[in-house]
């Protein structure tokens, strides 16, 4: 599963960690995050993320 980086603040969504504070369990692929999910650091929407290359 790919990691995704927030293009606004640089936060990386790692499916191996999830986003427990927002109720996103470990093992959730970025693609499966609800559309209402936003960057936990800066609040940018899901479409502000890009796939992290070369990892």
């Amino acid at each position: 599963m790919d990691k995704y980086r927030c293009t606004v603040c640089g936060y990386i969504y790692d499916p191996q960690i999830g986003d427990p504070a927002s109720g996103i369990k470990l093992g959730t692929a970025f693609e499966d995050l609800p559309n209402s999910w936003a960057c936990p650091e800066c609040g940018a929407p899901k479409e502000s993320f890009e796939k992290v290359k070369g990892e």
Partner: peptide, 9 residues
């Protein structure tokens, strides 16, 4: 009104 990244989280 929260304003994350204007200009810190």
């Amino acid at each position: 009104i929260e304003a994350p990244m204007l200009h810190w989280p």
